[in-house]
């Protein structure tokens, strides 16, 4: 098991899951604020960039591609 924080809330995932996998496993479907509303996973294979999150202070990480690591701090991104 791993634990990551998402906008300061701690959630649990399975070893090896992507950040998107952990978020969906925890019941979340949206984690980015776009101009027309919230977005989560769309393409799931790194093409569409809808699922971007900030991870440990680095912006623009595709949640569907990045394997979650215990202790990762995940933050929401807001498109201006």
């Amino acid at each position: 098991m791993i634990r990551i924080t998402v906008d300061a809330e701690s959630i649990e995932g399975r070893d090896g899951q992507t950040i998107a996998g952990v978020l969906i496993g925890a019941g979340r479907t949206a984690w980015r604020t776009a101009q027309t509303g919230d977005r989560g996973v769309f393409c799931g294979i790194g093409v569409c960039h809808d699922c971007l999150v900030t991870v440990n202070g680095v912006e623009g990480v595709r949640a569907c591609q990045r394997e979650a690591v215990d202790g990762d701090r995940v933050e929401r991104e807001v498109r201006a």
Binding site: A20, G21, I24, T29, A30, G37, D38, R39, G40, V41, F42, C43, G44, I45, C48, C64
Partner: peptide
């Protein structure tokens, strides 16, 4: 949110 490609459903 909740709409994905078929490929995303498969990959997840």
């Amino acid at each position: 949110p909740g709409v994905t490609t078929a490929g995303a459903a498969q990959a997840l």
